[in-house]
């Protein structure tokens, strides 16, 4: 069966947790910007965390389901509606055939993730479902979703269809209450970059004491930040070297860019700092115009926070798998 796009969104792509092992050929990992929420969407509908999900930006696409499906939406709150009735975020919803999924408004966050039970049945490229927009490869035909696209999804078990009967949709009674992507109060934790000490003491102080505004020139490749210009004591031109997701580079105009999921594999600007992995999903839910703050942490804490997130997801997965078993006979 297919999900049909009846109205295109601004940038909706198939993504997973990224395409690794190919950066030596210049092919970047890509993947969901908010990997936490992408995993939650899959977990809620009983999938492996590595299944493809649709990453939606606002205004988001409108989707038509030809057959019954078990779906979950996680991440940003775009006010999801099934057949004009609001459905909850972070909770699995069993929907009947001929359902229309629409998003009514941007309430919170920047990217929503749609997971479907069984997953999207699309070809895998270099071991990943993620869309590589530059190379026009991976995902759905290597591009963002257009009107009239039909994305195949795997069918749900007949026990779920029977449960649904003639009702339009049924909200299943388990949920993820943890939308970590949406807590904005705490600063983003940083680790020092190799060129941190190129900054003047005054500029170092600015990074820790001032806030930075996410500029409208931000996208899946990187977040450009606006703040008071930073200066260095050493302007030696750098030789291109690998960069990482979360790497903060200092651009020649004294402004910062945080590299996000679609970052280039290599770069030649000073690497001032890195946003820790555990905070990258939360950063991916910040919209242009919002302000962010930074503070430093240690390698040990950064690792510990990421492990805690992985454990949390594992517990959620165990619980959801258990609950879903009651419904799938």
């Amino acid at each position: 069966m297919n999900v049909r796009i009846i109205k295109a969104g601004v940038l909706d792509t198939l993504q997973d947790l990224g395409r690794y092992s190919w950066q030596h050929l210049g092919i970047n990992p890509g993947g969901a910007m908010d990997k936490w929420s992408a995993q939650v969407a899959n977990i809620l509908v009983g999938n492996n965390r590595t299944e493809a999900v649709i990453e939606l930006h606002y205004p988001a696409a409108e989707l038509f389901f030809e057959e019954p499906a078990l779906i979950a939406i996680s991440g940003a709150d775009f006010s999801a509606h099934i057949n004009a009735e609001e459905i909850p975020l972070g909770q699995p919803v069993l929907i009947n055939k001929y359902s229309i999924l629409q998003f009514y408004g941007l309430k919170k966050g920047a990217r929503a993730y749609l997971g479907v039970h069984g997953g999207f049945d699309i070809p895998i490229w270099l071991n990943s479902y993620s869309t590589q927009l530059k190379a026009r490869a991976g995902g759905y035909k290597g591009r963002a979703l257009h009107k009239e696209d039909e994305i195949p999804i795997r069918s749900i078990p007949s026990s779920l269809t029977q449960l649904l009967g003639k009702t339009e949709f049924l909200i299943l009674p388990w949920k993820s209450d943890s939308q970590t992507g949406l807590i904005k109060e705490v600063p983003f934790f940083l680790l020092e970059g190799d060129e941190w000490n190129r900054l003047t003491n005054e500029s170092k102080q600015k990074i820790l004491s001032e806030s930075f505004t996410v500029s409208p020139q931000s996208d899946r490749m990187g977040y450009r930040l606006k703040g008071s210009p930073l200066t260095t004591t050493n302007n030696t031109e750098m030789i291109s070297s690998a960069v990482n997701c979360g790497t903060i580079q200092l651009l020649p105009d004294g402004q910062l860019i945080v590299l996000m999921a679609d970052h280039q594999t290599t770069g030649g600007y000073p690497r001032i700092a890195h946003v820790i992995s555990a905070h990258q999903s939360r950063l991916a839910q910040i919209n242009a115009g919002e302000k962010i703050r930074f503070s430093f942490t240690s390698q040990q804490i950064a690792e510990e926070l990421l492990l805690q997130q992985q454990q949390h997801l594992q517990q959620l997965q165990n619980a959801c798998t258990f609950r879903l078993q009651e419904y799938i006979k």
Binding site: Q23, I239, S240, T265, L306
Partner: peptide, 16 residues
């Protein structure tokens, strides 16, 4: 994975 550049080699690893 490993990413070679002009004079550097970068190794990505899975913390868990």
């Amino acid at each position: 994975e490993i990413v070679p550049a002009y004079c550097t080699l970068t190794v990505l690893y899975d913390i868990g």
